[in-house]
Write a protein that binds this DNA or RNA. Structure first.
Length: 629
DNA sequence: CCGTCCCGCCATTCG
DNA sequence: CGAATGGCGGGACGG
């Protein structure tokens, strides 16, 4: 029943006697002992423990942990509720009756801010599903139900879903319906994101930004904001992908934010040396990438706000944790990566380079019913698949995809994907095991870095020396151009590349095989030059240069930044855009804008306007302190 | 005072 | 056209 979703949503209850997972929300059950119960599973009653059973889903130790932790922290959690008898009974017996409409009403009214936080909400949400879904059972997620059961407005659920979706932990099936994948694909997704991050040279950008901050610190000439990236950002060529012609796609204002932002944010972690990213840096980079110029300030603020949202759910996933970096100007909020470090080697992930002039802007658009069917068939990946592959099914799916694509994508867009898959299994499993081992906080013996004095608050340091399984080959994406697939693999998901980042990694859930494909979609410029082709070589080169630039590198001036020069010139991932960035990248903005303009009139105007506004602010021409040359 | 970030208006996009 | 999504930023909460 779709009942009125909005506002009232929160109000209504889930009358349903279904398998509601009542306690989850409360879990609380009286604050029992503080945290430590983690291990102890608190013998004393602690209904908390109970939760795992209830939902009927296989609970992973982690999920419980999560719940406990989240629950424990806020001392505030005294939840006035204790007082109200209703609640109490609610805790234990849950479902039974409990329509105490009134009771609940009152309850939700006074929840401390923390109790209403997105992070906690996310925890509740995650608690309802196993980290590694059992393909056998249905992993459907109905937004309405979730919203109701968690007593929150739909809007909030969207926030969560969006970032989960960006990590491929869920995928949209249709309106109002998602499928839960849990962490099954996480490793692969992360691997893909890492790669994408490398290709975007986020590592360099971050270093440069940091350096810049440092410099600035001395000579407090405070203004000229994030020009930095422009300076180096060749790959910037920000401009919306939509070809002028394709009006529909064009409007893609949409596929902006959250999902994309989330992926980019994660990328930053995966490419930064100490896996710490400050909000400030992240915001700057993400902004810079988006629109070339624009009045910062408010833009920046907003970006930060969004990042907090994303960070909150990532925290719930235990992929990151809040910390503080005591860089230059005092402490700044930052986040530390606590997710898996040993991602599946590139081989596990097939990379496909797609030069699509346009893809449906709605990546995860709801599939046709037929699609759904096939999808479901495949949806079994779970943890251990590997055997039984149904080629026929795969083909079917492919063909479907194909059709789909034909409809809304440019004719000329061959997809190249490196074949190679092979092993992967081991690495993947290893990753999974590790994650499950929990005790997360994996600390890679990071290179000591002077500047980032990260004071990891309560971090449980624990260097993970083990993980021998780490793929033999480091992170070198040996992307050998290979097979040509006429169509997108089943379940392909793709994002319309954000305005500027030329590549957006996308994982294609490819259940049956157990590996997925990462897609790097290049948006097509006005008209992709046919001859131009994604030079696989560049990829290789790029990644080579990167790999952990050891400690010292941090100190290097931007100009000397490791891969910097090398990548600089032809780093632009998008071949089609190549020409744009290929040129000596003379001062950035102006020329860039122009280009953008040409490719997209409308957009051009906008940019133009912005530029104008902006222009006044900063000196029109900044001495391009170009690294290269 | 300020770092966080909830809340929900309202523009978009979907069906 | 109404419902589903999801930008976005005012301004409240908590330290």
């Amino acid at each position: 029943p779709q009942t009125s979703p909005n506002k009232s949503a929160a109000a209504n209850e889930k009358k349903t006697g279904v398998f509601v997972e009542p306690q989850t929300p409360g879990k609380t059950s009286g604050k029992s002992a503080p945290l430590e119960n983690l291990k102890i599973m608190g013998p004393l009653t602690t209904p908390t423990k109970g939760p795992d059973a209830p939902t009927g889903e296989p609970w992973t130790p982690t999920s419980n942990l999560k719940m406990l932790i989240s629950a424990a922290s806020p001392e505030i959690r005294n939840r006035e509720k204790e007082r109200s008898a209703d609640n109490i009974k609610a805790d234990e017996t849950e479902c039974s009756s409990q329509e105490p409409e009134l009771g609940e009403e009152s309850e939700k009214l006074h929840l401390s801010r923390k109790e209403k936080s997105l992070g906690l909400l996310c925890h509740k949400f995650l608690a309802r599903y196993p980290d590694y879904p059992n393909p056998a059972i249905n992993n459907d997620i109905c937004l309405d139900d979730v919203a109701t059961e968690l007593s929150v407005e739909r809007r909030r659920i969207y926030d969560i879903m969006n970032v989960l979706e960006s990590l491929h932990m869920v995928s949209r099936l249709a309106k109002n319906r998602y499928t839960w994948h849990g962490r099954a694909k996480l490793a692969q997704t992360l691997a893909a994101l890492r790669r994408a991050g490398e290709e975007n040279r986020y590592g360099q950008q971050m270093l440069q930004l940091k350096q810049k901050n440092l410099d600035q610190e001395f000579e407090l000439d405070g203004e000229e904001k994030e020009n930095e990236e422009e300076a180096e950002g060749q790959k910037e060529l920000s401009f919306i992908s939509e070809t002028a012609g394709d009006a529909k796609t064009a409007g893609s204002r949409k596929d902006k934010s959250l999902r994309v932002m989330s992926q980019k944010f994660v990328m930053l972690f995966l490419v930064s040396s100490p896996r710490v990213v400050s909000l400030e840096i992240a915001a700057k980079i993400l902004i810079g990438e988006d629109q070339v110029v624009d009045q910062d300030k408010s833009k920046f603020k907003t970006k930060i706000r969004r990042l907090y949202d994303i960070a909150n759910v990532l925290s719930s996933l235990e992929l990151i944790k809040k910390v503080h970096v005591t860089e230059d100007r005092g402490r700044k909020p930052a986040f530390k990566w606590t997710g898996p470090e040993d991602l599946p080697s590139p081989q596990d992930v097939e990379i496909a380079t797609v030069t699509a002039s346009s893809l449906s802007s709605r990546p995860l658009e709801s599939r046709s019913s037929l699609d759904n069917c096939t999808k479901n068939l495949f949806c079994s990946p779970g943890t251990k698949r590997g055997f039984t592959r149904h080629h026929s099914l795969v083909k079917l799916a492919k063909s479907i995809q194909d059709d789909r694509r034909k409809i809304n994508s440019a004719p000329t867009s061959p997809i190249k994907m490196t074949s190679e898959a092979v092993s992967g299994g081991l690495a993947h499993l290893a990753a999974i095991c590790k994650m499950q081992l929990d005790k997360q906080t994996v600390n890679i013996p990071q290179t000591p870095n002077p500047e980032d004095a990260v004071d990891v608050c309560e971090d449980t340091l624990f260097t993970s020396a083990g993980a021998s399984t780490a793929a033999p080959r480091e992170s070198r994406p040996a992307c050998s151009p290979g097979v040509h697939f006429p169509v997108l693999p089943a379940g392909a998901v793709s994002y319309l590349p954000s305005p500027c980042s030329s590549v957006i990694p996308v994982l294609l859930p490819q259940p049956q095989v157990g590996r997925s494909y990462a897609l790097y979609v290049h948006h097509a410029p006005a008209r992709p030059h046919p001859s131009l082709r994604p030079p696989p070589t560049s990829l290789v080169v790029r990644s080579m240069t990167f790999e952990s630039p050891g400690g010292p590198s941090h100190k290097v001036s931007p100009a000397a930044a490791p891969a910097g020069q090398a990548a600089q010139g032809h780093d632009c991932a998008s071949p089609s855009l190549k020409r744009a960035c290929a040129e000596p990248a003379p001062e950035g903005s102006p020329s860039k804008i122009k280009r953008a303009e040409s490719s997209s009139p409308k957009l051009g105007e906008i940019l133009q306007a912005r530029l104008k506004a902006r222009r006044g602010a900063l000196k029109s021409s900044r001495p391009s302190s170009r690294a290269l040359h």
